[in-house]
Amino acid sequence: MEKRMKIKPSTLLIFLAAAIFVIVIPNTNEGYSMMIVNLGLIYAIATYGVSVMLGMGGQLSFATVSFMGVGAYITANLCSGRNGINMNTALALVIALLASALLAFGAGLILFRLKGTYFTFATIGLVQVSWSFYLSYKPLFGGPDGISNISTLNLFGFSPKNYNDWFYILAAFVLVIAFLVERVRRSQLGRSLAAIRDNEIAAQTLGINVYMTKVVAFTIAGVLAAVAGSLYAMHSQFVSSDMFTYERATTYIIMAMLGGVNNTAGIFVGSVLVTMLPEWLRFMQQYLQLIYGIGVILLMVFMPMGLAGLASGFAKSLKRKLYSKKKVTAGKEGPKQ
């Protein structure tokens, strides 16, 4: 198929918004508020995993936190000087990535013996198992106190000195991962997942190995979660089991749903918004969780495809007003309009 290098106005707008975000945010924030933004970026990486599983493949998994834990604790063990090891953090990140890929692949092989709701239940089981080990097993996970003194990231000699430095590193990570995920969506894997989401039987008759495709998606989600976990450990220089509970797992799903579960830009917006919301609404902290909960219900009722769904609906109606719709034969000059 011919590659089409046409840039759509919406893509341009997204890049513009991203550029403004990267320029404005670090110049207006520092210290604590910068740290919160950074956390939002880290969570976005994990939420991209949710997007691959739930948005593309229609599989609801809670296992994000289990694999975030894998990434975080591998990094914590290798880079905090406990057990006498203090490895280069970039190398630890790579190790975390490989280990989580193996674990997620294995777990996926087991969990996808189940389908639909029962798969979801089983991922909850995985979360409970991993969490209780993270909480209680001291030699590897530090027990309830967690692990502290984790070294900060060191990328080829460059090491962030404050949260503003971190912001640029994380923004770069998010950008690269967003790009890779968007490519998944546009590749055969993305299409196969979409086919599975809509109708598994039809997917099979199109030659798609439903089981293995789901396992691949689960592995990708696991790796993304682990990268987020590893970065989290280096960024906070501290890891404890609170980060990897069932409740946390629901947050990632909600982040994805708020932004638009099948939209790469939306995932980012959702993650940052959900992370920032408690800060903005600090004055009404008492009611925060309540608002949050009701907000989720309202979101599902009125815009199940999230902010991105809202935006694309708006864009479509705008387009309809601007151009009278012209239909073009496919295959002539590629896509039109």
């Binding site: 969780q289 909960g293 219900i297």
Partner: peptide, 24 residues
Amino acid sequence: ATYPTATVISTMGAAMALKEIATL
């Protein structure tokens, strides 16, 4: 709902809301 997962997610929202109403 056209998106079946939406119904499931809304029960997650309900769980948070219930917890918070009880606390309040």
